[in-house]
Design a protein around this nucleic acid. Structure first.
Lengths: 197, 197
DNA sequence: TCACAATATGGAGATTGCCTCCGCTTTGTC
DNA sequence: GACAAAGCGGAGGCAATCTCCATATTGTGA
């Protein structure tokens, strides 16, 4: 659970690193239980530190969220690499969409947090989402080249779309099957085949 | 601005009705300015009443929101009736989707508030949304009969979809044109014509 | 017209969460 | 082991929600 955040600048003092790690660990659990809106003071308390300590390490909720999501976002990067190497670009895109939507449901409120962060390049969460946005861009581009997706579909639109579907399915308390149905609705479109102009 | 809320049970005392109306009027303005999360104490203050008065008339934020949206939701009912009488059921559905998405953007946070309320039948906001849900059901059914929409599309899914698009477009600060593009993406589907199986 | 019961009021204050500030403690280096 | 730098915690200011109840207003029946 020791992150490499310390290695970016001068290393943290040993006690500070210990606190940092503990906070991230507790935060991940709290977000999982209560959603991204979990009380930060409560997380600090459960991690055995004062609020001041939490806020020095993580000036904003998004910074803490980004740290807590670190592992999951790396996984997503791995998935993207795997799918880029897959045989069928169209199937790869379908799988990516589903995988991404599922990831966005790991914490309650996550689609909202990420959608907001993506609008603000200075947010640490936005930076952390790079594997996600880059993955969508690459996998979508390959699917387009293969002729599996309309050429005018933009990566930013697709990301917004996936996020909004994850949001809707969370709001409704959807099962995984219901999420898949909602996604299929969008990928296939509302029109019946006979009416496609 | 005198609502008929008073006529449902024993009529309100004259002063109470005055306060009720003033609160609703101020709330509509506050929601428009600050979104559905506007401070209720602040609304009470601006309406010249104490918080206790506001909370007696409107026990929850949703109750106040429902009252503030009363007029807009009636309008939506009118639109539904007009579209049910329109010539082209497919075009009517398209117009309904766009109109509904636009309505959901009248207050910041409205898609979220409504999506939550729709999950809870006891919410007054859920009741107030009846013109909306009924409109979707009818207009969708007609479009299906006309063969313009796949038979397996459910009204509840469509409502969720429209809500989530409104949510996404709000998050991104989309223009009306961007909202339309996003909607078109969904109604048409991601696939190019040549690949439809 | 007036008195009184029913109705309604408002604002103080309990609670919860966010975030900052700064005097004290811990660490690690010389 | 001493001292500067780094880090800590928690008190407390702020904002929002929502409740409670002593007080005030209304409208009705005599």
């Amino acid at each position: 659970m020791t992150t490499d955040a310390a290695t970016l600048k001068r290393p943290l003092r040993a006690d500070a690193q210990r606190n940092y790690d503990k906070i991230v660990q507790v935060a991940a659990q709290a977000f999982a239980e209560k959603g991204t809106g979990a009380s930060l003071d409560d997380i600090a308390c459960r991690a055995g530190v004062g609020p001041g300590t939490l806020y020095r390490h993580f000036p904003t909720r998004d910074a803490l969220l980004a740290a807590a999501l670190h592992g999951a976002l790396d996984e997503l990067g791995d998935t993207a690499r795997r799918l880029m190497a897959a045989d069928d670009p169209a199937a790869a895109l379908d799988e990516w969409i589903l995988e991404l939507a599922r990831h966005l449901r790991t914490y309650g409120g996550l689609p909202e947090s990420i959608a907001t962060a993506l609008q603000d390049p200075s947010s640490p969460l936005c930076t952390s989402c790079q594997p996600m946005t880059a993955g969508t861009a690459k996998i979508l581009a390959r699917a387009k080249e293969a002729g599996a997706v309309r050429a005018d579909v933009q990566a930013s639109d697709l990301n917004a779309l996936i996020g909004s579907l994850a949001w809707a399915s969370e709001r409704r308390g959807d099962s995984d099957a219901a999420l898949r149905r909602l996604i299929k609705l969008v990928t296939d479109g509302l029109r019946p085949l006979s009416v496609v102009e």
